[in-house]
């Protein structure tokens, strides 16, 4: 999904508002409700089996873009979890709004999802690969900045996972390994980037031999 969440490489953001090692990182949560996003995610996913983490990621991507950009991180998590509970029929948006004392915005519907498209042959470490030049309306775990770009495989995982573009929409999927693919920043953005490399963890279904 070519949404506002796909921030990698987007220009115009200001300087980092952090100095390394300047924070203690406790307390972990700064407001008394912030733990509820993750807690209720685990409850809905692991305990109740109503949805999965990929669906949560996609629900957050489906937020109205202005709302996404003006919400805090944990606010987005709560909205994503609430959206899934409503979409799965466990709760109603009206009841949520009643208890919240006002409108209760949820994620917007978009995209049908798609079946897994694992490669015919697994890729090998050292192989040159290219990211498929394709536009996916639903959930996808390839950031836009690698679309069509060429890189080198550094690692093939020894574990396998279901294809996000399917399970992110609640559809069943076979599992496959992912590949750590290294790109030069020059390949990604030409001279408009600092020299260096970027490694992206990509499902084989996003790749073709270069």
């Amino acid at each position: 999904m070519d949404g506002i969440h796909d921030l990698g490489g987007l220009q115009g953001f200001g300087p980092m508002q952090h100095q390394a090692n300047s924070l203690s990182y406790t307390p972990v949560f700064h407001e008394d409700w912030e733990h509820l996003g993750y807690s209720l995610l685990f409850l809905g996913a692991a305990e109740l089996g109503l949805f999965n983490v990929d669906e949560l990621r996609h629900a957050i991507e489906r937020m109205e873009p202005r709302h996404y950009l003006t919400s805090s991180y944990y606010e987005r998590i709560v909205l994503g979890v609430a959206s899934l509970f409503v979409e799965k029929g466990a709760l109603s948006q009206e009841r949520l709004a009643q208890l919240a004392g006002g409108a209760y915005p949820l994620a917007l519907p978009l995209g049908p999802g798609r079946a897994a498209q694992a490669p015919a042959q697994p890729f090998e470490v050292g192989q040159q690969v290219r990211v498929r030049d394709e536009w996916v309306n639903g959930h996808i775990r390839a950031p836009g900045y690698v679309r069509g770009k060429q890189g080198r495989v550094l690692h093939r995982t020894t574990h396998q996972w279901p294809f996000p573009d399917a399970v992110g929409h609640g559809q069943p999927s076979a599992s496959e390994p992912t590949y750590h693919v290294q790109f030069t920043t020059e390949e990604l953005w030409g001279d408009a980037a600092d020299a260096g490399t970027v490694v992206v963890d990509l499902f084989g279904g996003y790749l073709v031999p270069a």
Partner: peptide, 28 residues
């Protein structure tokens, strides 16, 4: 499914998080 614009939202993030917890508790 709401399509209301963000600025039409009078509830706060804290109220929405607590409401989600409360609805789930009410449903046991």
């Amino acid at each position: 499914m709401s399509t209301s614009a963000p600025r039409a939202t009078p509830s706060t993030p804290a109220e929405r998080a607590r409401a989600l917890l409360q609805v789930m508790k009410n449903r046991a």
